[in-house]
Design a binder for these strands. Structure first.
Lengths: 316, 316
DNA sequence: TCCCCGTGTGAACTATTGCTCATCAATTGG
DNA sequence: CCAATTGATGAGCAATAGTTCACACGGGGA
């Protein structure tokens, strides 16, 4: 086709695009104006889009978040990803992601058919549970991925499973075990006893796993909360631990370590690669390496984070 | 409603808009993603538009033209307006507007039901006629608004009516009169004779009038072509003439003058205000005051011009 | 010259979107 | 505390947009 016609076709495409998107006419009107069939007007509008003659710009902070979420989803083959605007007032605030996690839980629990939700650790997860809107779903099941008894024998304040069950009337399965056993043998023994095996079995069928992601540094939450000692933490760091999910430490490639506390952990380990919908929830510059490793290692296939964290992950 | 909810609603609107326009999802998909009904998703997309969260940008020279045409249409209450990109190589070229005029004529003449087209003077009009695609429409009528005999008695080379009739097989009505009579009396006598009255009658029923717009300055086309003498031209300029349509001179407010050559003109005068679709076709910096006056005086209700001229008219 | 290929076209059909209306929940004022 | 008002909601329908298909046109190449 002659270059001149090609050009005039693009001109018409631009005209059609202008009339459609900017002037707000229907394609039928445009067809009459341009003296073509409606089908041709539609083709012109498509062409205008295809040739990128027209661009959309979303003037809203959310736009950047959507963009980041789409890139994360693509890059790490995630089944679900949400990025919330970073709160400039509180860059580490979990409020934003907690709201999204709560929304996700709401959506999942709204289902009439029975679902199983498994919960891990993390402030965001805990906060999310508090924000779930109460709903009566006695046929759902809520299961904990981590032991809720801390080193000193008291019940952990992370009783997220119980709280979520309160709000839904669902059956719930806390894990009646200490976070760490004293030896590998003992761990292996414990996880085979009936009540624990039952919890594991339910967790294995979970429709959704919602987990926090912890970094393994001097401020590691597992240490701050008293689940692992300073020495245990340092040992894991020497072994290359960079992050943890439900206590399971992994290295910078997202490989679960086969040493140290991992041998004595009672938590249910992540699937590798994650097949069940497994959503990680975490924010903060300190957690970026841990989150990135979890994504690369396919320990999670979903992520809820904030804008600053998302950007940092993508820029690595 | 609380400000927080309001904000979250706008967030959702932005999300929906992003998913719709940028990610290209359907509203149904968006509804599922956002956990709302499809109707609500549609409302969110509308809201996004209404709140101008999203803007469209058309990266094409045509965009500016469409914008200018829309402003001219609005400002002067035009029923039709087209602005073509100015050709940087030939700022006065009528090629662009001629093409659009031809397109307009094509569109009008394509009609199966009989239509009457009246033609005025002007290079653009003449060039447009040459570009009309031949079509067999014996029931159409083409009528001239101006005498086609020049001062020296020869037939004018502006035989646009004949040329257009050739291309369409339409009946045509040239105006067998000199452009100017020697006196007002004589003019009044001539326009009453049968063949002329017939032409006037047909012209009065025209569905479309396509006319050129001439400026009244030393390079006025009516003078250059020898229809009016230098003295006559200067006299009209003294009377305030700034432009002419089919020879009828008007002042800067678009009021037809009641003096000088206007008293001896045989051309069919413009309707004031224009009720029939009356399209003016003109480009060039020199014609800007004439075009603007014609628009203000409602001598025309349609305009075909180029980008530079359109901009100049709007900036006055 | 005739044929073939690529391209564009409109008709007809399907999918998507926009709108109206009845309903319902929340908030406010009496 | 209740009625009135406001505003959001979803169902259902009408309008609009998108797709598919068969066909026509026009420009090379045999």
């Amino acid at each position: 086709m002659a270059a001149e016609n090609e050009k005039s076709r693009l001109d018409d495409a631009a005209r059609a695009g202008w009339l459609y998107f900017i002037a707000g006419h229907t394609q039928d009107e445009i067809a009459r104006m341009l003296q073509v069939s409606r089908a041709s007007a539609q083709r012109l509008v498509s062409l205008c889009l295809a040739e990128r003659l027209i661009t959309f710009r979303l003037e809203h902070p959310i736009a950047a978040c959507m963009e980041l979420a789409a890139r994360l989803k693509e890059r790490f083959e995630l089944s679900h990803c949400e990025v919330v605007p970073a709160d400039p007032a509180a860059p580490q605030a979990t409020a934003g992601i907690a709201e999204r996690c709560a929304n996700l839980l709401d959506a999942t629990l709204r289902s009439e058919t029975p679902v199983i939700v498994a919960l891990g650790t993390g402030r965001a997860v805990r906060a999310a549970v508090e924000r779930v809107t109460p709903i009566d779903r006695p046929n759902h099941q809520i299961v904990s991925l981590v032991g809720n008894i801390s080193a000193d024998g008291s019940a952990s304040f992370y009783d997220t499973v119980g709280r979520l069950a309160d709000r839904t009337g669902a059956r719930h399965y806390p894990m009646p075990l200490p976070f760490l056993m004293s030896s590998e043998d003992e761990r292996n023994k414990m996880v085979r006893i009936e009540p624990i095996a039952k919890v594991k079995a339910v967790a294995a069928k979970a429709d959704l796993r919602l987990v926090g992601i912890g970094q393994m540094d001097q401020k590691a939450q597992v240490h701050v909360d008293g689940f692992v000692t300073r020495d245990e933490l340092f040992e894991m760091m020497r072994q290359g631990a960079i992050g943890e999910i439900t206590g399971w430490a992994y290295d910078s490639k997202g490989r679960l370590l086969k040493a140290g506390t991992n041998k004595r952990l009672t938590s249910i380990p992540p699937e590798v690669p994650a097949k069940t919908t497994t959503i990680g929830a975490a924010v903060g510059a300190a957690k970026v390496p841990a989150i990135a490793a979890a994504l690369n290692g396919r320990l999670i296939n979903g992520l809820i984070t904030d804008e600053a964290t998302a950007r940092a992950i993508l820029e690595r």
